[in-house]
Design a protein around this nucleic acid. Structure first.
Length: 225
DNA sequence: GACCAGGCACATC
DNA sequence: GATGTGCATGGT
C-alpha cells in the first residue's frame, strides 16, 4: 500500500487530521438513523437534515416498519425541513420497503453479506445512488468502502490528483487502491474531506486557510467548482 | 436576492 | 453515451 499516490494521500490525511482533529462520524445515534440521514442529506446541508431527524425521533419513527407503514403525506411533513421532501419521502419508503420485504426489517441481516453484493442491492433501490450506498456501507454497516462526494471531488481537483472529468468510480478507486483497507481510516478520511471542503475549499470565496495549501494547490480550477 | 448545501433519476438529444 | 433539468428547505 505504498507508492507515490498512497504516500501523498496519507500526507493529506495527516495534514487534515492535524488541522481539524478526528470527526467521529457519522453524527447519528444508531445504524438506522445513519441510513435515514444518508438519504436526507442528498444535496442538502446537514443542519437541515438534523431538523428532519429530530422530527422523526419525536414521532418515534426511527423504525423501519414504521417508516414503511406511514402515509407519504405524513412522512413528507416530518422531513420537510431537509428539502426535496416529496422525492425524499419516496426514496425513504423505497429503502424501508426493500428492507422489510427482503430482510423483515432487520438492518443487521442486510448488512451481513459481502460489500459487493450489499452495494449492488442498495444501488438497485430507486433513490439510492453511489454516495448514499457507500455512506450506508461505511458508516452504518461499518464495512470498508470509500465515500466520494462533491467535496472530495473539489479538494482532489484543486490539488491536481484528478482530472475535472473524473467520475465517482475513478475517485473511489484512487483511494481504495492506494490506501490500506481500513474502516476507521476511510471513515475519518471522508469526514475530514467534508470539513476541509466546507470550511476552506468553497466555490466562493474559493480557498481560505486550507490545511492542504502547502501541497500543490490550484485554487482556481475549474470555474464551476 | 443570490448563492450554497455531505445526489439522484429521468428526459432529451 | 453525454448533457440538462427538476426536486425544496434554510442559512449566509
Amino acid at each position: 500500500m505504498s507508492g507515490k499516490t498512497g504516500r501523498l494521500l496519507m500526507e493529506f490525511y495527516q495534514a487534515m487530521l492535524q488541522a481539524s482533529g478526528p470527526q467521529h462520524w457519522w453524527p447519528g445515534q444508531n445504524a438506522l438513523e445513519i441510513v435515514i440521514g444518508a438519504v436526507l442529506t442528498q444535496n442538502t446541508n446537514w443542519a437541515n437534515v438534523e431538523r428532519a431527524i429530530k422530527n422523526l425521533r419525536k414521532a418515534d419513527l426511527i423504525d423501519v416498519a414504521g417508516l414503511d407503514r406511514i402515509a407519504a403525506e405524513g412522512l413528507g411533513e416530518l422531513i420537510r425541513p431537509a428539502g426535496y421532501f416529496r422525492v425524499k419521502t419516496k426514496r425513504l419508503k423505497n429503502l424501508m420497503g426493500f428492507i422489510m420485504d427482503r430482510y423483515q426489517g432487520d438492518l443487521e441481516a442486510m448488512f451481513d453479506q459481502p460489500i459487493g453484493s450489499l452495494r449492488r442491492e442498495l444501488l438497485s433501490i430507486n433513490g439510492v445512488g453511489p454516495e448514499t450506498a457507500d455512506d450506508i456501507i461505511l458508516y452504518a454497516a461499518g464495512k470498508p468502502t470509500f465515500v466520494v462526494d462533491t467535496y472530495t471531488y473539489r479538494v482532489l481537483l484543486r490539488h491536481g490528483l484528478i482530472d475535472s472529468d473524473a467520475d465517482y468510480q475513478q475517485i473511489k478507486e484512487l483511494f481504495e487502491q492506494n490506501l490500506p483497507e481500513d474502516v476507521q481510516l476511510f471513515n475519518e478520511y471522508h469526514a475530514l474531506l467534508v470539513v476541509v471542503g466546507k470550511n476552506h475549499c468553497r466555490p466562493k470565496p474559493r480557498c481560505q486557510a486550507c490545511p492542504l495549501e502547502c501541497f500543490d494547490h490550484d485554487p482556481n480550477l475549474p470555474e464551476q467548482y
